[in-house]
């Protein structure tokens, strides 16, 4: 980030937004109508303590702030993505107290005291998590937007199989084992518009077998 030549997707988009200002102006002009309605009656902000990727964070948030927005807009951890914002696509998947959840469908204030792991906490560009490395190796993405959610989901999902949690395709409820059909079923909450599914399954299989 300190290298001025290092252009991240985020800084690039921020620059493009200015250039595209004229084209988006009508959309921006419409937006404040909804905001005005809500800003007339503000609710008091509340303190929220989270441990995110091992680091203690103290925030003061409007109770309406979702866990996803707290991570992205307040802690600037923009790896977790906002896709549908309704729990349908899985792009916002993070791991809370060891469990994968849709961070868009839960309020930050409900997680006071909780431990959150995002894609930034799994690995770094210098030291990839094995699941990240496997996604790269197997080409488990094209545009990459769903990928942080896919990877957080995959890591927690392998834990669920290990813990013997059954799924819809488990023949014997008392005997859970890894298979491609188990992975397909268990990953159905993570949508990939580029349809990289076969490669995602190959990546997950490699990590499972390692």
């Amino acid at each position: 980030m300190s290298d001025p030549n290092d252009v991240t997707r985020r800084t690039l988009l921020a620059g493009s937004a200015v250039a595209a200002g004229i084209a988006t102006a009508p959309a921006l002009a419409r937006e404040p109508v909804a905001s005005r309605k809500t800003s007339s009656r503000m609710t008091p902000k509340m303190p929220v303590s989270l441990t995110v990727n091992g680091q203690a964070e103290a925030l003061t948030l409007d109770p309406r702030v979702t866990l996803l927005d707290a991570l992205r807009e307040h802690l600037h951890l923009t790896g977790s993505k906002k896709g549908c914002d309704h729990g349908q696509c899985g792009a916002c998947t993070v791991i809370v107290n060891g469990r994968r959840i849709n961070s868009c469908l839960t309020l930050a204030v409900m997680h006071d005291g909780d431990h959150v792991t995002t894609i930034e906490g799994l690995g770094s560009p210098e030291k990839l998590h094995p699941m990240q490395a496997a996604f790269v190796k197997h080409d488990g993405f094209q545009c990459g937007y769903c990928t942080p959610g896919q990877i957080c989901s995959s890591v927690a999902m392998l834990g669920e199989i290990k813990d013997g949690i059954p799924s819809h395709v488990t023949d014997d409820l008392t005997h859970v084992e890894f298979s491609d059909s188990e992975v397909r079923e268990r990953m159905s909450g993570n949508i990939c518009r580029c349809a990289a599914y076969p490669n995602i399954i190959a990546a997950i299989r490699e990590v499972h077998e390692a």
Partner: peptide
């Protein structure tokens, strides 16, 4: 073991992330 129809119904609904919540 004893109420498998309930397990089966639960895992046929929603996604892994939603069932966790």
């Amino acid at each position: 073991r004893d109420y498998a129809v309930l397990s089966r119904a639960l895992v046929s609904g929603a996604s892994g992330q939603l069932r966790n919540k």
